[in-house]
Every structure is written in C-alpha cells, then in structure tokens.
Amino acid sequence: MKLTTKYLTPALVFIAFLVLWEVVARVLNVSFVLPSFTEVMVKIWDLREALFTTHLFATLKIVAIGLGCSIVLGCALAVWMNNSKAVETAIYPILVASQTIPIIAIAPIFVLWFGYSIWSKVAVTLLFTFFPITVATFDGLKSVSKEYKELLLTMGATKKDIFLKLSVPSALPFFYSGIKVGVTLSVIGAAIGEWLGAQAGLGYFSRRMMSQFDGAGVFAPIVLLSLLGIVLFLIVSALERKALRWRKTQ
C-alpha cells in the first residue's frame, strides 16, 4: 500500500475532525457542554499529575485484572465446550443470553455484591470482555478441519497431540481477534465500573468533573481512556503480528 493511503489520508481526516471540533466549540462558546479541543488538552496538562499517576494507574489495574480473568476463564470455557458436545449445548445458549443482559443496568448489583472494592469494577470489565474472547477462541478450536485431524491420526496422534499441535495453533488467529475486541471493550467496562462507585480511576474522575460542570474536565479523562484503548489495541496487534508471522505467506 502506498504511504499516502496508509498514513496521510487518515491523518488528514483526523486533523479535519479536530479543527471542526475546535471551530464548533468556539462558535457555540458553552464550554461546560462542549469544551474545545485545545481546552481539553490544556486541562490534561493542568491535571497531569492526578490523571497520569493516580487515575490512569487505577483504571489500568482494573483493565489488566479484568482482561486477565477474561482470558483465563474464556479459554478454559472454550476448551471445555470444545471437548464435550454436551457442555457446548448446555453452556453456549447461556453464554449468548448473558450478552442480552444490559450490563450497564445490572452493574449496580455488582456494587452490592462486591462493595466499592476493585472487584465490582473487575466484574463489569469481565462481563464486557468475556463473551468475545470465549466465542472467538471456541470458534478457533472448532475451525480445525477433519482432513487435518485424520492426517494426524494416521501418524498415531493422541487426543493431546491433536489438541496441542493442531487445535491450539489453529485457534490462535481467532483468539487474537477476540482479544482485540476484548481490550477496547475492557476500557469501556472499567470506565463504567468506576462510574458506579470508585475512589479513583479515569471513569470516576470524569464523573466527578461532570458534577462540577467542568466540561473540559469531563473530556480530559475520556481522551485518556480512548488513548489507553488504542495503545492496548496496538500492543495486541504487535503481539499478533509476531506470533502469526506465517500469515503473511498465505
């Protein structure tokens, strides 16, 4: 791909968006509803100490624990469903049904269950990220074709050989897709969890600024949340490229 199409066009569109935002905000001139881009940037700079040390760190901790739990539970469940048709038919519908529950609506219940500790926020993050990771990994494990399985069987492969040498590597690209969806959702989950009750975190900070009608203060942590999501996504993409080098040859 040409460098222009890869970097220049999206960069120009993004800059155009920022300029438009700036102009509209200045014309409207109601900064507690729509602060201008520069106001938000200035705010981030002013509050850098609180934002970057306390709040970003608190949110990152929730994201890391929530995502970690999601990956462990999601993979375990995917493997379990893949091993037994009975488990699949029993659990899969519940899994899908769990996604139709409006998570934001039931999130306050987690506060009742886990109090204002980190675990209520982790639970919300888990609920957001668990589904895409589980389903993607499960689909990946199921993507192994019968031909390959039979070929390995003719070599005398055991169930364990087939799982480790065939199912796991086949599931890896799917797993990474699930994680990429998961990391962006994890940031949203953590922010919502913090909204409901926390002593720190970017979501909590944004809400506190809202009660003070500080428009730029609301936006500043949101920009950071979004950046956090982007950075996590890029990290996963880099890991993916490294692990799936062979895909370039296809």
Binding site: E147, A157, K165, P169, W246, R247
Partner: peptide
C-alpha cells in the same frame, strides 16, 4: 502406514522443517 493426502495438508504455521518433523514428534 504412511499417508500422503491429495491436498498437501502442510500446517501453515509450521516451517518446512517443523512440518516434516511432525510424524517424528508424534512418535
């Protein structure tokens, strides 16, 4: 017995060396 399928069925994520090693690994 050794079996060579119609499609090569090489594992795309394994190098040629690792693909050829597969039956030995399984043994």
């Amino acid at each position: 017995v050794g079996y060579m399928p119609q499609k090569d069925l090489l594992l795309p994520w394994r190098s040629i060396l690792e693909n050829a090693m597969l039956p030995l690994e399984i043994k």
